[in-house]
Simulated scan of single mutants.
Amino acid sequence: MSDAAPLVLDSVTQLDASSRGLVACCASHGGVYAAWYAARLGVAGLILHDAGIGRERAGVGGLDWLEGRFVPAAAVSHHSARIGDGADMQARGVLSIVNGPATALGLVPGMPVRAAMARLIAARLPAAEAPGAKDEARQDIATDGPLRIIALDSNGLVTHEDAGHIVVTGSHGGLLGGKPASAVKADVFAAIYNDAGIGIDGAGTSRLPALAARGIAAATVSCFSARIGDGMSTWEDGYVSALNEVAIRRGGRIGHSTRDLVACLLESL
């Protein structure tokens, strides 16, 4: 039962077996995969980030998914707290979206995260039942000479074998806990993310300068052009909302489609 102190994490990927039966505040986007990941580890209640809500409400799609499993969940407004920063969500976050089970417990839009967490803990909720398997996708899109273009639903799927290639991700463009080392685990040639509504303190694009410092061209696409959490949507639907100086030097411009941006990056070689 969720009678212990809440977990406050920068990402749902930091949850583990010890999270079972606890209430968690995780600064991941509120998409279906994040919700599934948390349910798989048996959290009792969950607060995520609304990531700008965005196209087809992908930024909060996980709340509906959890409602279908009777798990109370809510999302924090991107105007109130930084995505990727659990401590900031707990300190400044204000709810924007609340699912049915959370509403029944008294959570409402506009409620501070601390108050929402207190209500969830006081409810002494049962652990979520483990859902079936679900995979994030990784797909090679194309090869241009020695470079591969890879679509990934999550930045966490980047491997060291991707060094020197282009990764097109469904992840938000925010650093985890503000740490530059969290930007990407391999020295890729270029990386593209979702801007998660950009939000307070420009958090949704905070990976970009960290990647520029490593010589990596990077950009975000608007959350209203592509579904967050969906790498192929970033590739097929995305339009650039922000770029770092490396991407600009290589010809990238705000308003480019993802495909046009990648073409410019390849032409700059």
Rank of each mutant, 00 (worst) to 15 (best):
I200D: 00
L66T: 04
S18I: 09
L107H: 03
G177E: 03
A226P: 04
I47F: 02
V98K: 14
F189D: 03
V184G: 02
A226I: 03
D201M: 05
L15T: 08
T169H: 03
A183W: 09
L22H: 11
I149G: 11
R40Q: 14
E236T: 13
G178I: 04
S182A: 10
A75F: 06
G21I: 01
R20N: 05
A35Q: 06
V221L: 01
A212I: 13
I254N: 11
G132W: 13
A122H: 14
G31D: 13
K134D: 01
H49P: 12
T159L: 04
R20A: 14
A104I: 00
H165F: 13
A217C: 10
A226Y: 06
H172V: 11
G61W: 06
A39W: 06
D64E: 09
S257D: 01
L125Q: 09
V108Y: 08
K179R: 15
H165N: 08
I149S: 11
G177K: 05
V188A: 05
P126I: 09
I150Y: 02
A196W: 02
H172E: 15
P126R: 14
W65F: 04
A190G: 02
G202E: 06
L175K: 10
L208W: 08
A130T: 15
D144Q: 10
V262A: 03
V188G: 01
H29M: 15
A116G: 12
G59Y: 00
D260N: 08
G197N: 04
E245T: 15
G178P: 04
G170W: 07
R253I: 12
A203M: 08
G31P: 02
R92S: 03
I216C: 15
G52N: 01
S206H: 08
G177P: 14
T13P: 01
A115Y: 07
G45N: 10
A44D: 06
G156M: 13
T159I: 08
S28E: 13
T234G: 05
D162Q: 11
V76Y: 03
R119H: 12
F70P: 00
A115V: 13
D135E: 15
L175Y: 11
A213M: 10
L125S: 11
A4W: 13
N244L: 11
E129L: 12
G61I: 07
A51Q: 06
S11N: 15
D201P: 00
I121W: 13
A130M: 09
L147C: 02
D230G: 11
L66N: 04
V167F: 02
S18F: 06
L152T: 08
P72S: 04
R250Q: 14
M111R: 10
P131C: 06
I97A: 15
A4M: 13
L175I: 11
R124D: 09
V246S: 10
V246H: 04
V167N: 08
Q139K: 15
A74G: 14
R124L: 05
G93W: 00
L269V: 07
R148N: 03
F224L: 03
D10L: 03
G177S: 12
L41T: 02
D260V: 10
I228E: 00
A73P: 10
S225L: 06
A210V: 05
A58C: 12
H29A: 10
A191L: 06
L269C: 03
V168A: 07
I141Q: 13
A58T: 05
L105D: 09
A133T: 15
G21E: 02
